[in-house]
Amino acid sequence: MAEIHAVEPTRRDFLYVATGAFAAVGAAAAVWPLIDQMNPDASVLALASIELDIGAVPVGQEITVKWRGKPVFVRHRSEAEIKAAEDVNLADLKDPQTDDARLKAGPDGKLEKEWLILIGICTHLGCVPLAYKGEYDGYFCPCHGSVYDTSGRIRKGPAPLNLEVPPYKFVSATKIQIG
C-alpha cells in the first residue's frame, strides 16, 4: 500500500499568495478611476430627458428644442400635412416607413397624428434641415439637397434614412417627455 504525504505549505507559498492578492488589489485600485471617468457627466445625465409643454404651439407651427445637444423638431401638423404624409406610396420611399410608425399614442391610448417629433439632424452628413421647405413642404437640407416630407421621411437627395424619431411619450394632453 502506498503512503500519501501531504505537503505542508511553506512560508514561501504564503508570500506568493499574499503578493498576488496585493497586486490584484493594487491593479483594481489603479484601473477603477480609468473606468469611472467613462461614466457620463452630471450635466449630461440632467439632459437625459426633458419635459416640454406643447399646448401653446399653434396648428401649422413648429418649435425647436435642444435635447442631448441635438435639435428636436416638435411640429403641430395641420390636417393637410397629415393627409399628405398618409397618402404617400411606400414604394416611392428610400426608407419605407408609414406615417403611423413614426408617431406615438397619447395619454388616452389614441395615436397623436397631429404631433410629429423628430431629431433635426440630416441623416446624410449631420446638417440641420430647414422646416417647411422643399417640394414636399417638410424639411430641406440646403447643404446637399436632401428633401424630406411632412413625416420626416427622405424623398430626394443623398440622405439614406428618414429623420430619426427620438424616444418620447405623452405625459398629458399638452406635455411630452423626450428621452
Rank of each mutant, 00 (worst) to 15 (best):
I121G: 04
T64Y: 06
K104S: 15
T98F: 04
G69D: 06
H76S: 14
Y139P: 00
K83W: 00
W67D: 13
I121M: 06
H124N: 04
H124Y: 01
L118K: 09
K113M: 06
C127G: 06
D149F: 05
I119A: 12
G120T: 07
A84R: 12
D100I: 10
K66Q: 14
R75N: 15
K133W: 00
K133A: 14
T64I: 15
L111Q: 05
G152D: 00
V88N: 09
K104W: 02
Y148N: 08
R102G: 11
P142L: 05
R102I: 12
D99F: 15
E135H: 11
R153I: 09
Y132D: 13
A84F: 00
T150R: 14
G138L: 08
H124T: 03
C141V: 02
D92P: 05
F140N: 04
G152F: 01
I119Y: 10
G106A: 13
L116K: 03
K113A: 07
V74C: 12
I121F: 06
D108Y: 01
A84L: 03
R75C: 10
L93K: 04
P142D: 11
P142N: 10
C143S: 10
P96G: 08
A91F: 04
V74E: 12
T98L: 04
Y148A: 07
K110I: 15
T150M: 07
V147L: 02
W115I: 11
P129H: 04
I63P: 00
T98G: 13
S146I: 12
L118D: 00
G138R: 09
K110G: 03
V128F: 02
L130D: 13
L111R: 13
Y132Q: 10
A84D: 13
I82A: 03
F73W: 10
L103Y: 07
C127H: 06
K104F: 08
E81T: 04
D95Y: 03
E79C: 00
T64A: 11
H76I: 10
L116M: 13
W67G: 11
I119Q: 15
W115S: 01
D100C: 04
D99R: 01
G109N: 06
T64S: 13
K110M: 08
L130V: 12
P107S: 05
P142T: 13
L111E: 07
E86C: 01
G134F: 01
P107N: 05
I119W: 14
P142V: 02
Q97I: 00
L118H: 00
S78W: 03
K83V: 08
L116W: 05
W67I: 08
Y148I: 02
C122A: 13
A80W: 02
V65T: 02
G109E: 14
N89I: 07
P71Q: 08
C122R: 12
K83P: 00
L93T: 08
R68D: 01
V147G: 00
W67E: 11
E112W: 06
H76W: 11
L118F: 01
G145L: 06
E135Q: 14
T150V: 05
R77A: 03
I119N: 14
T123I: 03
V88F: 13
K70W: 08
R75G: 04
D100H: 11
K104H: 15
P129W: 02
I82M: 06
W67R: 13
C122G: 10
E79G: 01
